[in-house]
Design a protein around this nucleic acid. Sequence first.
DNA 1: CAGTGGATGCTCT
DNA 2: GAGCATCCACTGT
Length: 190
Amino acid sequence: MAKSIRLTRAFFDRSVHTVAPELIGATLLVDGVGGTIVEVEAYDHEDPAAHGFGGRTARNATMFGPAGRAYVYLIYGLYWCLNFVCEPEGVANAVLIRALEPTAGIPVMQKRRKLHDVRLLCAGPGRLCEALAVTRAHDGLPLDVAPFRLLARPEAVPLAVGPRIGITKAMDKPWRYGLAGSRFLSRPFK
DNA sequence: CAGTGGATGCTCT
DNA sequence: GAGCATCCACTGT
């Protein structure tokens, strides 16, 4: 049985394009509730689809660093989205966490989501934040201390790669990563 | 299973 | 005022 390695700031102090695929298979818990990361997307500072592209604003300030913190924002006035900030500091790079395979605190998540179907509890960035009760209160918090608990994947996993979802710019970039064959994705890979 | 449209309100120009 | 890194319900195969 492999020991669980806690991810610290050093893990995130690398390119967002290195970090994003390595997060697939890692475990994310917030106050003990969560599961295995099965889908993420990378957004870098030269990326027209990324929030930081147009410069620093009140909303996206956390995305400019330091690395290893949560960047949380509200989308469509309704849903929260959780990101992990990567290096370098001073420009905006982050990984959007899009889906989890629920493993811990499933009854709590079912209650928060008012939904029984485990497959859909965390299958999407907004759904995931509702299930884990992530809100603006988590924006800027370090990922290596409570309430977060982030554990490295025990071994390499088969990756699926494709274009990102829900954007209107830079749609050609293949910066969406998933656990190949997972039933818990927000949408299947082609 | 695919496509469409409405909800809903914050953020920035 | 426009746009948004979404979700859900509803339509029609």
